[in-house]
Write a protein that binds this DNA or RNA. Sequence first.
DNA 1: TAAATCCTGTCA
DNA 2: TGACAGGATTTA
Length: 280
Amino acid sequence: MPELPEVETVARGLREQLSRETVETAFCSGARVFKTDCTLIPGMLSGETIRFIGRRGKYLYLDLGPARLVIHLGMSGRLLMDGSRILPPERPSQDDPHIHMSIGFRSGKRLLYRDPRKFGRVLLFPDAGDSAMIFSRLGIEPLGPGFTLQTFRRLLKGKRGLIKPFLMSQEHISGMGNIYADEALFLAGIHPETPIDYLGPARIRRLFDSIPLVLKMGIEFGGTTFRDYRNSEGREGRFQEMLSVYGRDGLECRKCGRLLKKIQVGGRSSHFCPACQRKR
DNA sequence: TAAATCCTGTCA
DNA sequence: TGACAGGATTTA
C-alpha cells in the first residue's frame, strides 16, 4: 500500500543514492508487472545517465537520457538499493524469485524492483514525453501549489457518491490510498460514508486542510509500514505509530475513547470513530 | 456505481 | 486451510 508519502520517501532516497549514476546493465524478468515490452529495457537504458527522479501521484519515475522508466509499486512493490535490508534479510538477492528488475550502475550500485504480489507496474517510454498517457489521467497533486480551497470546492461540486471513494479515486486527487484517506477523514471529523453533497463549506474546508496535513506528516515520518512497505534502504516507516484510525478498529479512539469501527465502503475497509466522525 | 480481476503472503 | 488484504483496470 505505498501511497503518496511512501512513494515520495522512496523517490527522495533514490535521488540521494542514484543522482547522475550511469547504467551499465539491466535485467528484467518477464513478469506481468511489465506493461511495455521489457526486452527493450536493457538496451534502452545501458549507457544512459539518471537525469531526474520524480513522483506523480503514486507513480515514481526515473529519467535516463531521453527515456523514462515509470514505476507503480502496487501493493507489495519495493524499490531497493542492493545491499539494503531486503526482507527476509538472510536471503541473498540473487535467487530471490520476487525480484523482477535489476539495474546495475557503473559505480557498482544496483537498484532492484521486488514485488511478490505483482500488483505493481513498470513501463518504459523511449521518450519521456510519452508518459503523458499515464500521468494525464491523474488528478491534482494534493501537495502541489494548485491544490487550493477553491480548486477543492470545484472538484467536489455536483459530485454524487460517497466521500471516501472520491478521495481514493486517483482521477480527482492523486496519491491518496486507504490509509491516508481514512486518516484525513478522521482529522476532518467526516464519516467515510458521507455523501459528497452532504458536505457544507465548513466541513469541506476542514477536509481540505486535513489532506495535505496527513500526507506531510506521513512523509515526515518516512511513510507507513503496515505490512509490506520499505524505503529504498529496506527500512520501515514510522507513521504507523501515529495512525488515528487505520488498522485500529476495536481499539479506543485517541480523542474520545469510543471504540473504533471498521466497515466496507466501496468495497474497501474503512476505519473510523463513530463518535468523532459524522455523516451530517 | 458496483463487482470482479489480478496475486501471494499472512493470519485466524 | 481458507479468508483477507488492496490499487487500478476491466466488466456488468
